[in-house]
Design a binder for these strands. Structure first.
Length: 321
DNA sequence: TATCCAAGGTAAGTT
DNA sequence: AACTTACCTTGGATA
């Protein structure tokens, strides 16, 4: 029983910081940090300048982005707080520990993007989206924060989902010191499971509040964990994730694509469904599972999720056409 | 100023 | 299995 029942997070202060840079010449293919982090596929990064989502068409911005990542199997043993910015062909970083393996993992700098473009469908709409946002990479969000943040995304605008995610971190997460600035980590399962529905509603989660609480309880109690979907076939993995409260097919696909590395997953959100009606009407098979399958074929199979994410960003930012 | 509406859906109840 | 409906909240559109 910790005594942190209030909104004040425990302070976990580590004062040591390191800094350095990743030359982007070492990355296979192009990279666009802003497009990657502000495209609405991850809600776990924040801009200390407070201008998240305010200028999504401005390419090559050199803003700082920061996050705190929990330990990740095979990548990091401890939480790392990091901030990065893209500038002059390098990815500059300041962090509480060497973040290069972590950042490479989180932002999929190990993907050969040129090869993925080569495999992209010969499709006018997709090609336009790729041309518009060349360098946008998928992310590998930590599984639990990804799961919770996407439960929050139901019927919600991108900027507000990000706001909820930041609110959860500020209210219930552990703070880390990064060069003198306090950076809150996304709450761990027990840090959310212990909250009341009312506390979560105070953060404007609305009807998602009990979903978040119950899912956090399931993970905290060990009843299930999103990483247990790893190793299952794509559709079985999606089915596994829908056992979490507040998770249907769409949000399950988001977790598979944006956290667990199922690049064939294509979340059928309202934007993509509009695109199906307008550009791929023959892929509309009625049910989610069937339409998903048909569209996945159309968008190139194994990397269909990449096409989905370019399409989502392109349609959402450009309005239409 | 007041009202309406959609926002990266899901759960629960009906047919 | 497919179809309805309720659900929190808010910023922007419309009257």
């Amino acid at each position: 029983m910790t005594a942190d029942s209030g909104p004040t997070p425990g302070a976990d202060v580590s004062t040591a910081t390191e800094s350095g840079a990743i030359p982007l010449s070492e990355v296979a293919g192009p990279f666009d940090l802003q497009a990657t982090v502000e495209s609405g596929q991850s809600y776990l990064w924040d801009r200390p300048d407070g201008r998240m989502y305010e200028s999504m068409d401005a390419h090559g911005g050199d803003a700082w982005y920061r996050t705190v990542a929990p330990p990740i199997d095979g990548v990091t043993d401890d939480p790392i707080a990091v901030r990065i910015r893209q500038r002059e062909g390098r990815l500059e970083w300041v962090a509480t520990d060497d973040p290069v393996p972590l950042v490479t993992h989180l932002l999929r700098l190990d993907d050969d993007l040129d090869a993925i473009y080569d495999a992209a469908p010969d499709d006018d709409l997709i090609q336009r989206a790729v041309d518009a946002y060349r360098g946008l990479r998928l992310v590998r969000d930590p599984p639990f924060p990804c799961l919770i943040s996407f439960i929050c995304s139901a019927q919600m605008r991108v900027a507000r989902v990000h706001g909820m995610s930041v609110g959860l971190a500020e209210s219930f997460g552990t703070e880390y010191d990064l060069g003198g600035k306090a950076v809150p980590a996304f709450p761990e399962p027990d840090q959310l499971a212990g909250r009341t529905e009312a506390e979560l509603r105070d953060l404007k989660l609305g009807y998602r509040a009990p979903y978040v609480k119950r899912t956090a309880e399931m993970v905290a109690e060990g009843a299930a964990h999103p990483t247990e979907a790893l190793g299952l076939g794509y559709e079985a993995a999606r089915e596994y994730l829908t056992q979490f409260v507040g998770v249907g097919d769409k949000i399950a696909d988001c977790v598979l694509l944006f956290s667990l590395g199922y690049l064939e997953a294509i979340p059928l959100d309202t934007w993509i469904q509009t695109a199906v009606a307008e550009y791929y009407p023959d892929c509309d098979c009625g049910t989610y599972a069937e339409t998903s399958r048909a569209l996945r074929e159309r968008l190139g199979g194994a990397y269909a999720g990449y096409a989905q994410t370019y399409l989502f960003y392109y349609l959402r930012v450009r309005g239409d056409e």
